[in-house]
Simulated assay, not measured.
Amino acid sequence: MTEQATYTAHPDEPHEVGTAARLNWLRAAVLGANDGTVSVAGLVIGVAGATNDNEALLVAGIAGLVAGALSMAAGEYVSVSTQSDGERALIAKEKRELAEMPKEELEELTQLYQAKGLDRDLAEQVAVRLTEHDALGAHAEAELGIDPEEFTNPWHAAWASMAAFTLGALLPALVILLPKPYNVPITFVSVVLMLAITGATSARLSGAHVGRAVARNVAGGSLAMAITYGIGMAVGTGV
């Protein structure tokens, strides 16, 4: 008797549906927090270079946080809405084609599986079986790379971006209110640490080199803070 081989998935290997989508959302959240940290840090440190007035620093921090969070949310909503509208239009077109020319669509699906490496007979069998089970789902996945049951939600993207930006922006907006003259160096150090964390997290999620990602992130954020602080000092001195 021949023993049937069994396959056991590696515990660290993601197989469930939606893993890639969840990773993309997580990457977007990390990048949103990073944007909030850098942009608001640059703003409040620039203002700190021009004035020591805590009220001005508080107003700048809140204004930068609110404006940035709303801008991120609006931008994500518009962008993802456009993507979602395109997905729905493609699915509607696929439905019409399946209803009006089913034979041509079956042949198209067969050729798609041939292009993936299956021989003609096997590709045709797979296409027939999948069409019998869920014709629209089969075409949407193989031809369009879309799940017709799960369109991208623009509201989810908007709220996630707003929340991530706000969380990242809170750090510099609050730390800059510490007593002078320690507020600027402490803000600088805390932001650099935050950028190192978000850079490392983003690199691990993307499978990139952690050291290079952290160095780029920290260097870019540090340069932004240094430039805005210098501009603030120049403006404050001039005024």
Rank of each mutant, 00 (worst) to 15 (best):
A196Q: 01
P14R: 11
K103E: 14
P154Y: 11
S71N: 09
L58H: 05
D121L: 14
A224Q: 02
I231W: 04
T198N: 02
L118Q: 07
V59R: 10
H156Q: 13
E3K: 05
A127Q: 08
A138C: 08
S71L: 02
P172L: 06
A56I: 11
N217R: 01
T198I: 07
P181N: 07
G238A: 11
V78D: 05
L118P: 00
N153Q: 09
G18T: 12
P181K: 05
M72W: 15
I176V: 11
T166F: 01
D134C: 06
L178F: 15
H139T: 05
G137V: 06
A67V: 03
R212A: 14
S161T: 03
I227W: 10
A50W: 10
H15S: 09
S161N: 05
Y7I: 15
L130N: 06
L98A: 07
E143F: 13
R27E: 04
A135H: 12
F188A: 11
T131G: 02
T110P: 08
V38P: 04
A208R: 15
S81G: 03
V175Y: 02
A215I: 12
E100M: 12
G42Y: 11
A73H: 12
A224G: 07
P154G: 04
T51P: 03
E97R: 13
A115K: 15
L205C: 02
A173H: 02
R120V: 15
E124P: 00
V192K: 00
A123S: 10
A5F: 10
L144T: 13
I176A: 01
S79W: 12
R120F: 14
V38T: 12
T82K: 00
V184K: 01
L98S: 08
A160R: 10
M233F: 04
A213W: 07
P148Q: 09
G238V: 00
I45F: 05
I176G: 10
H133R: 13
V80Y: 06
A142L: 03
L23Q: 11
S84L: 06
A74D: 02
A173I: 03
G75L: 11
A208K: 15
D35Q: 13
L106Y: 07
V30N: 03
A67K: 09
N217T: 15
G49M: 04
K95L: 13
E105Q: 15
A60E: 10
P181V: 12
T187L: 07
L106T: 11
I186C: 06
A196G: 12
D134P: 08
L195D: 07
N24D: 09
V128K: 14
V78W: 08
E100D: 14
N217D: 02
T201E: 10
A89P: 00
T187I: 06
E149K: 05
G232N: 11
A56Y: 01
V80N: 01
A213S: 15
P172A: 06
A208G: 09
A219W: 04
A92E: 14
